[in-house]
């Protein structure tokens, strides 16, 4: 009987330590969720009051006067669109090669490895890269250079999703196409792309979400511009860089603009990634 009593004690102890450990895991989860809530609540609390029509209709002001963020918003949109337009076609084609033509080649393995590294390469290094290949030879900062550095961030994301999504397309579809004599290129464009479409779009949306908040690669490629500019060959303002400049300034009205800009970016990014996930989930269940 002695040993049984001992065992019961031991059992209680094991159960207690298990409960303790799992309780700590719950605490960890609450900490994680708390961080998200803290950041979002601060953004709404500090940025929401600055939201007005003027934010979208007026230019960034000098300290102490009225204004908005129009040139910064426009600059962000222009460079994001350009970045996606430059990056996406290259990425989709490269992903197509990896999933279709080079499916079993060694080259694909190497590209996938390199691409995965690019996926988490520090964005500031990409900014330096574009500075040395574009800004330094051309002797001036430009929105185009900013767009190219954003494109380099877009590429690995879209390559990855394109390859993954094309690989999910069942081979029977490809074989059926081949058996009725459809050339491979047409099969890929009309059948494989069609089947993988929602997945690839999800990837592009996630890439847009990622670049719309990128600051580091724009600092020394697109620089900044206090005025309205649509010239892609000249410096251009962008929301993240304006936030950086305004937030670190000593002027409280500039800091208020920074918070409003931060709220705008975060809402855009979160909306994009939620939308992308919803689209991806729908594609997966179908």
């Amino acid at each position: 009987m002695d040993s049984l009593a001992f065992d019961r004690n031991r059992f209680r102890k094991r159960r207690r330590s298990s409960a303790l450990a799992m309780g700590l895991c719950l605490v960890a989860t609450l900490i994680g969720l708390g961080c998200l809530a803290a950041v979002l609540l601060t953004l709404v609390a500090k940025g929401f009051s600055g939201l007005s029509l003027e934010i979208f209709t007026k230019m960034t002001p000098p300290p102490g006067s009225d204004g908005g963020l129009l040139n910064a918003i426009a600059g962000s949109v222009v460079m994001t669109v350009l970045g996606v337009v430059i990056g996406t076609p290259i990425a989709i084609l490269a992903g197509t090669y990896m999933a279709e033509y080079g499916r079993h080649s060694r080259l694909t393995l190497v590209i996938r490895f390199i691409n995965d590294i690019l996926l988490s390469a520090p964005s500031i290094v990409i900014g330096l890269f574009v500075y040395t290949i574009m800004v330094a030879p051309m002797h001036h900062f430009s929105a185009l250079a900013g767009a190219v550095s954003l494109a380099i961030i877009v590429i690995p994301v879209v390559v990855r999703t394109t390859e993954d999504m094309l690989r999910l397309v069942p081979d029977q579809l490809r074989e059926a196409a081949a058996s009725v004599g459809i050339p491979r290129a047409i099969m890929i464009r009309k059948i494989a792309y069609k089947a993988a479409w929602s997945g690839i779009i999800t990837g592009v949306l996630l890439a847009i979400a990622r670049i719309s908040g990128e600051t580091a690669p724009l600092l020394f490629t697109a620089l900044n511009n206090q005025f309205w500019s649509t010239n892609v060959n000249a410096p251009m303002a962008s929301l993240p860089v304006v936030i950086f400049q305004f937030a670190l300034s000593p002027y409280s009205d500039w800091q208020k603009f920074a918070w409003t800009g931060a709220l705008l970016i975060t809402m855009t990014v979160l909306a994009l990634s939620i939308f992308a996930r919803a689209l991806g989930a729908r594609g997966a269940t179908r």
């Binding site: 998200l36 950041v39 719309s212 990128e214 600051t215 931060a262 990634s273």
Partner: peptide, 11 residues
């Protein structure tokens, strides 16, 4: 938790 990963660095 994944949304936390999506919030830009500058924020």
């Amino acid at each position: 938790i994944e949304l936390l990963a999506g919030i830009p660095s500058i924020i």
